[in-house]
């Protein structure tokens, strides 16, 4: 994509900003719109953007398949794990009250980790799906 020199330069400028924005959406979810899901999607969109500009192989080098695939599972485990933690600390499933020193901080902690889990899974899945779709023809040719 040599011809899209402009795109490459702008892309380089934009990508860090987008990542920052994803993090902002993730952690600002308590106060404004946003949260794990949106942050996950944006995070995936960043990599997709990178892949669009620099090509899929480059993106795959940046975020390898194995990492993506384990993200898919880890996020869910994190979420479900928060639930189990509620059980372990003597509450009901997904009970955040027991996670912190007092109920509100427990809630805070619970929500934080839960959102993190959502974000991880969502970005993992979206990215994986993109890889799968975008890389398919290539994989077919390789055979």
């Amino acid at each position: 994509m040599r011809r899209f020199l402009v795109l490459r330069v702008v892309g380089k400028l934009l990508i860090p900003f987008m990542l920052l924005f994803a993090l902002y959406v993730q952690f600002h979810g308590d106060f404004g719109p946003g949260g794990g899901f949106q942050a996950g999607v944006i995070g995936a969109a960043v990599i997709v953007f990178y892949a669009l500009i620099f090509g899929l192989p480059a993106a795959r080098r940046l975020v390898p398949d194995a990492v993506v695939e384990s993200m898919v599972g880890l996020g869910v485990l994190l979420y479900a794990g928060v639930g189990v933690a509620g059980l372990v600390f003597g509450g009901n499933y997904l009970d955040y009250f027991v996670l912190g020193a007092d109920p509100v901080s427990g809630q805070h902690r619970g929500i934080f980790w839960v959102e993190a889990g959502v974000a991880i899974t969502v970005s993992g899945v979206m990215l994986k799906i993109f890889y799968m779709f975008a890389g398919r023809r290539r994989a077919l040719e390789d055979q």
Binding site: D30, Q107, H108, I111
Partner: peptide, 11 residues
């Protein structure tokens, strides 16, 4: 009060 989160949707 119960969750300490301003965004009710998130809560």
């Amino acid at each position: 009060r119960e969750t300490g989160v301003q965004n009710v949707v998130t809560a």
